[in-house]
Amino acid sequence: MSDLALELRGITKRFAEHVAVRELSLQVPRGSVYGLLGPNGAGKTTTIRMILNVIAPDSGSITLLGQPNTSPGLLDRLGYLPEERGLYKKMQVRRLLRFLAELKGVDAKTADRRITEWLERLSLRSPEKDWGLAKVDELSRGMQQKVQFIGTLLHDPEVIILDEPFSGLDPINAQALKDTVVDLKRAGKTVVFSTHLMDNAERLCDSVCIVARGEKVLDGTVSGVKSEHNKRNIALALAGAPSDDVSAILADHSLVSRMDDNNRYFEIEMAASGNPQLLLQRLVGAGAEVQRFELIQPSLHQIFLDKVGAAGVEEGMSGHG
């Protein structure tokens, strides 16, 4: 048995006007929480649809739980919460959930037992009121989202794919979702989710992959990605406006690749070959009065902005992620 829950190798998908995903490769270890990050239109949903075998990639291969994702029955071990959520409005909640479970190969009896458990767990069923007997359109939006979430997990899947799970959630449901993701990880499940909300990803994910314009920008464990970017950023504060000498040092491209100049405060991105210690020595040597010189841990958000920038969002793309 492979220790990877999911592996994409060189996936490319072209649509008529554009390439949605280009040569994307990634590996999701079993039992991990994996974030697929990127701006809208980066190809996240297309990637997920290819993983789910809803659309076929033009080239490349997808391995799910050690098997090609086209293997029969494999999808039954997968749970999927789409970004665009919806349910049959006129259907009774319990019947709808039983239907979703049966589609994943769960027999009616097991499904019924689990539905009751889940409805109680998410407080949709109490001695006073059983929302399972109501029709979907009688439920509030928040309750419908809970039902949808139950539908994703009812067949006890090994791999759970959540597409933008936090969009449209109220804070309470968002917290419930985070708790459930943690529970699922503890139960040994693999969770893959796409999001453009970096804060959530940073807190929840073991590993991430950032995509933009259909291409991978970077991937790895969250700590790995952060430490990789750890020493590259420097916060510099001077007592007064920089002298010409100091300005010349900051403009030296062998040291500094990019600089955000706020007169006395600078955010400096070191050049690939640049050494922060050398920079500090030269600044002090040039007579700069340094108030602050700090190697800052960039947040995932900053890394994302640095790597993707505003240009990462392709214009004119629909919200297909």
Binding site: L52, V54, L75, P82, R85, L103, K104, Q148, T152
Partner: peptide, 14 residues
């Protein structure tokens, strides 16, 4: 209905 309510999204994953 399946399209507009987006139920199809879930169904096609099964």
């Amino acid at each position: 209905e399946e399209k507009t309510t987006r139920v199809a999204e879930v169904i096609v994953s099964s």
